[in-house]
Amino acid sequence: MRMSNQAPSDLSLIEPTLDAYADVPGSLIAILQATQDAYGYLPMDAMEHIAERTGTPIATIVGVATFYAQFRLEPVGKYLIMLCQGTACHVNGSELISAAITDELGIDDGQTTDDGLFSLKHVACLGCCSLSPVMMINGQTYSSLTPDKAKKVLRQLAAEAAEGGAA
């Protein structure tokens, strides 16, 4: 699993959001969502900056950031695998898919591969229950998975990334 050792964040990326929302009560979640959109995760220095600009204690901000499943405190890989853990997917074997992904990539829920290519995240129902089990990778849904099919998808993405890197 990769650990973060991040360079200082470019805080200007969130200035427009802060200009618009810093003084609007109740906007903390919206500000954090915009921040995550900007950096791909919530860097600590960005949260400190939000604390300063909004006058909210940093503990409150980290408290909110760690409460909600959507927020990440670590950068994610190029491909974010969102593996559905809904009831229908569970009944149709999502546990086997999870094991297959771990077997293929060596990462568990919440972790990122050393090469920074894949992150795995177990998510609550994606709402495609009739196509279960499903996973979503960067907005694309892969449905009616088998362990084998899931591995093939990952291998194909890895191959595409390698090609892209070479080109």
Partner: peptide, 11 residues
Amino acid sequence: DEGDPGAFMDR
């Protein structure tokens, strides 16, 4: 905030 895993009518 349809959170029940297995329900998607609101969506």
